[in-house]
């Protein structure tokens, strides 16, 4: 399926914004355009990219998942508590390879529970995931007793590993984005997600398995949350009670920046990827140019408003307002 004209305009706007802020930062910082810094940007963006890609599927189907940050926390916390070993008298918890499958399985399971709340219990996605956001974080805090857990061993392999000059998480981000883009644009499942988001009633009448699709997309967000959590803890070397805090808003911002409609039925993986890169580039550039700390939120918020305004204008010009969907 080819991108619509509107999506092409949205992608163009994002690319221009990304190029514009990059130029500004490059003019003000000698090291912004250095390869090592670009590598850092890609690595820092990975948890947001992975989360945003999965969140795109959810938002396309008219849903939202506020619990991704809490899933990142709980999935990694439970994997470390279940598989890690802390020798008596040591402050370091040694992790083995089992931490990966356990975290991913827990993450997927938590996402699946979100899907069940929405499909079986018929709870609005916003309310359901608002509830599980608090619930999952509460369990995570209980498991770790809100303490800092320093970790080493296998969990660091992924977060700190390199392949062909790029961090392993970056390769994961690329693989996830490419696979998701192919699924959304080329597969039957992708078309079903778009149809379900565009008009749930029509989708049901044509026999599209609504429950199955919703369960799968929320489980994918859970899986993405676990990947994000593993990446962060692998890099930082510590499991903190703040892990994943605020991730949901960054991820949703990236998706909205990328042009995915909050009303469902349209969206683009490439847009979400660029949205995540734009947010990370701004953070990185502000740091490099030594910006006033009080300007960070102002600039981030301003760029979000600018992007959404341009997107709205583009929609009007294309004669297709978002409200006409569904």
């Amino acid at each position: 399926m080819r991108m619509s004209r509107l999506q092409q305009v949205q992608i163009l706007i994002l690319l221009l914004l990304l190029a514009g802020v990059s130029l500004i930062f490059a003019r003000n910082s000698a090291s912004f355009a250095a390869w090592t810094n670009l590598r850092n940007i890609l690595l820092d963006a990975t948890p947001i990219v992975v989360g945003a890609v999965a969140m795109t599927f959810v938002i396309i189907t008219r849903g939202i998942d506020l619990s991704i940050g809490s899933i990142a926390n709980l999935s990694v916390a439970s994997a470390i508590m279940l598989t890690g070993v802390r020798p008596e008298g040591s402050m370091l918890t040694e992790t083995g390879w089992a931490v990966y499958p356990v975290a991913l399985a827990v993450g997927m399971g938590l996402g699946f529970i979100n899907g069940l709340c929405i499909t079986v219990l018929r709870i609005n996605p916003l309310i359901a995931t608002l509830g599980t956001m608090t619930f999952y974080r509460g369990i995570g805090l209980h498991l770790t007793e809100a303490s800092l857990i320093s970790v080493q061993g296998a969990i660091s392999w992924f977060g700190r590993g390199q392949f062909l000059g790029l961090g392993l998480p970056v390769w994961l981000g690329i693989a996830v984005a490419v696979t998701a883009a192919v699924i959304l644009s080329q597969s039957v499942s992708g078309r079903q997600m778009l149809a379900l988001g565009g008009s749930p009633r029509s989708a049901r009448e044509t026999g599209i398995g609504e429950v199955k699709i919703i369960l799968v997309v929320y489980a994918l967000v859970g899986l993405a949350g676990a990947c994000a959590g593993l990446t962060i803890v692998g890099r930082v070397g510590v499991l903190s009670s703040e892990l994943g805090s605020g991730l949901e808003f960054t991820v949703i911002t990236a998706v909205v920046l990328g042009g995915t409609s909050l009303f469902g039925g349209s969206g683009s993986i490439l847009g979400s990827l660029l949205g995540a890169l734009l947010l990370t580039t701004i953070q990185n550039g502000l740091n490099l140019i030594g910006a006033d700390p009080y300007h960070y939120d102002v600039i981030r918020g301003g760029i979000l408003i600018a992007a959404v305004t341009m997107d709205t204008l583009a929609s009007r010009i294309a004669g297709r307002t978002r409200l006409s969907v569904g």
Partner: peptide
């Protein structure tokens, strides 16, 4: 007060 952001801040500043 976020550990990951402290890491990213250090990483970026060391770059410049």
């Amino acid at each position: 007060w976020n550990t990951e952001r402290a890491m990213i801040a250090t990483q970026n500043t060391l770059q410049e």
